[in-house]
Amino acid sequence: MEDTQWPVWEVFVQGNPGIPHKHVGNVHAPDAEMAIQNARDVYTRRSEGISIWVVPSNAISASSPEDQGAFFEPSNDKPYRHPTFYKIPDGVKYL
């Protein structure tokens, strides 16, 4: 059998209730259960978390750096998507 360091899992930790899980790094583990345990031991030693997600690294598909222009720049010139774009007179409330 080929010797390995086990597959890589990306680790996401939720710090507090209601906030999103945040990517913190990765761990090596033979399976999901061990990945969760390892993530707990490696990334939450200082009370950083209340919940952990692990995802096999090779299951993540990412946009490529070359796409950055085509993907993200077109939204820069559409400020009308943001509420601050609209001027509301001072006297009007709850809007």
Binding site: M1, D3, T4, Q5, W6, P30, D31, M34
Partner: peptide, 15 residues
Amino acid sequence: GRWVREAATAYAAKQ
């Protein structure tokens, strides 16, 4: 540690 890593890999494959 090699046999340990192999055992866990084998178990994961079986599961």
